[in-house]
Amino acid sequence: MNSLIMAKIQLNGKKVDIKTNYSIFDLLKKYKLLNKKVAIEYNGQIIPKGSFKKKYLKHNDKIEIVHFIGGG
């Protein structure tokens, strides 16, 4: 097993492998979403922007990243 891959998380319903010591900030950076209007739910809890760097991901975490789309 690759020693860098330490955990599997569920991101927007999809299983994703992440490295150890990976924060929400790192995750958003990876998907180029740092400057986008998004909101994050971490295991059912909304995480404020100020805590993105402090919140580290662990095995089996469930992350939802949402944004605005067209709607009536």
Partner: peptide, 24 residues
């Protein structure tokens, strides 16, 4: 304008998004 809240498409990073066209 009304807008809906949905999961972002994490697989397609280049897909256009609403905020690029309608400045909040």
């Amino acid at each position: 304008v009304t807008v809906a809240v949905r999961r972002i498409n994490i697989l397609d990073k280049k897909k256009p998004i609403l905020t690029d066209y309608l400045n909040p």
